[in-house]
């Protein structure tokens, strides 16, 4: 049963790592704004496709 000491040590160490990660995420402001990142993440994709969408837009304008 001495293995328990090691196991408990491991589990505590792991949990402390998660706590550290949580504190880091709060500190770096990840919880301050819960909306904007969800929009921001989509931007890169659009830049790649920009040519196609431009065409689409052109058909919409002046007729």
């Amino acid at each position: 049963m001495s293995i328990m000491y090691i196991l408990i040590g491991c589990s505590l160490f792991l949990a402390i790592c998660f706590l550290g990660a949580f504190i880091w995420s709060v500190k770096s402001g990840q919880l301050d704004d819960e909306y904007t990142p969800s929009v921001r993440i989509l931007f890169d994709d659009i830049e790649v496709k920009s040519d196609n969408t431009n065409e689409k837009n052109k058909s919409k304008k002046l007729t």
Partner: peptide, 20 residues
């Protein structure tokens, strides 16, 4: 300075200790 962050830390610590 926003008080919100402090509360987040407090919840995080309490949750961690509670679970263990």
């Amino acid at each position: 300075k926003s008080e919100n962050r402090k509360l987040s830390y407090q919840i995080g610590v309490a949750g961690f200790c509670f679970g263990n």
